[in-house]
Design a protein around this nucleic acid. Sequence first.
RNA 1: GGCGUCGUGGCCAAGUGGCUAAGGCAAGGGUCUGCAAAACCCUCAUCAUGGGUUCAAAUCCCAUCGACGCCUCCA
Length: 465
Amino acid sequence: MLRVYNTLTRKKEEFQTLEPKVVKMYVCGVTVYSDAHIGHAMSAIVFDVVRRYLEYRGYSVHYVMNFTDVDDKIINRANQKGMDPQVLAETYIQAYRKNLEDLNVLAATANPRATQEMPQIIRMIEGLIEKGFAYPAKNGDVYFRITKDPEYGKLSGRRIDDMQAGSRIEIEEEKEHPMDFAIWKAAKPGEPAWDSPWGKGRPGWHIECSAMNLSHLGEQIDIHGGGNDLIFPHHENEIAQSESFTGKQFARYWMHNGMLQLQGEKMSKSLGNLVTIDDFLARHEADALRMMVLNGSYRAPLSYSDEIMDAAERGLDRLRSALKPAPAGAVGAAAELRNTLDRQTEAAQQTFVEAMDDDFNSSGGLAALFELVRAVNTARDAGATDAQLKPAQDTLKTLTGVLGLRLGEKKASGGDADKFIGLLVEVRNEARKQKNWALSDLIRDRLKELGVAIEDNKDGTIWHW
RNA sequence: GGCGUCGUGGCCAAGUGGCUAAGGCAAGGGUCUGCAAAACCCUCAUCAUGGGUUCAAAUCCCAUCGACGCCUCCA
């Protein structure tokens, strides 16, 4: 039984979908005005793992992730660079797509963008006005009337009165209540603008997600995800808009990932303490970032450091150690040992599922995989052949695949080179027979410089890139 | 000030009432090896602090200290 922690109730709840075996899932994407950093990557990876695991458990997942392609920051940035805001946004959308692909994040079912949803957004605003949940102001803005929504604050656990007290928000005269938020913003000169019943303008940030959910997934969805910095005000406002508009519960489960921190602070564009995904990938493989995320729990903050990355990379090496082939001369393992391996494989798979079923406990899932790694390596040491190792290794590959790890399956690593390396290994073994250690060590050392590792086992020599 | 998350070995981290407190990294010892490497085996924590509840608590309650996030754009 899958259990999911729901921000709305602050509890783990049994996961039940609106429709059997179908999951409608919406994750807030990024505002595209600069290069994405590894905090964004963490969020993308977290929800990619959720999606992959749900699919592994037999669900068909409709996964929607949006791009916010019109907002103040994009406009400012574009003006600085003397570019058209839409061109700027498009550039970063393509860059982010590439980042996600490099990170082995599965493509979403749909990637809607605010600028392509104007009719739906405007229709929704009209509906909210009709129902009295929103009002147009004299300045051309349209605001959501939070006092009309008795449940406002239920996601973030805030009360309107509390917020008023400590609020640092500038009180705009056009607003009925200081906490009312804009769902349509009147255009200032030179800004991108769309026609609307309230004059030229553009949508507020929150309304686009509500509208895109409605048009791409329907009135109700199963999972809504994003970083926990979005809980307030973004997701709170989304709930207010969507539920006021439809009169129905919007998302059943709200999932939020913790923030990636650098030197004790949240990594963010505004603070400037960030590592871009491109920077990261120039120094590490994509799996390493994923491994780092998987080792923790998605809801907790995660500190990024070289030490953590080092541990993650070594952990990956360990997972890969089980996928190495048996030595050429392997004689085969006894029946009893093969049974043990089968049993351990079964147990690992079961433990993996139990852990992941508990709110996607990936570090628990990894622990099960490491147990399997030990089992495989022990069997290989005991003489198991490739054929005997295969079922366990296949299981390991399947389960690491559920986590989205590739484990460096470098395609056609050497191509033709493999044959020549095999030949060198053969020659080296001849030298070893003749106790020509100088020559055999030379071959080993030189191959190592070329990135080929040689391991002499009892039953023969293994080499790998 | 308000809301929320959290504090487990050198580091990361699971576990949230009861068998010997998962797993990974690092460290030390050992097996194997011509030497290595890899693998395997062994060793390494009483759970921030102080009270309380209970037959029994890392796990529940209270307090204290500390960290982080949100309350303003933010994954």
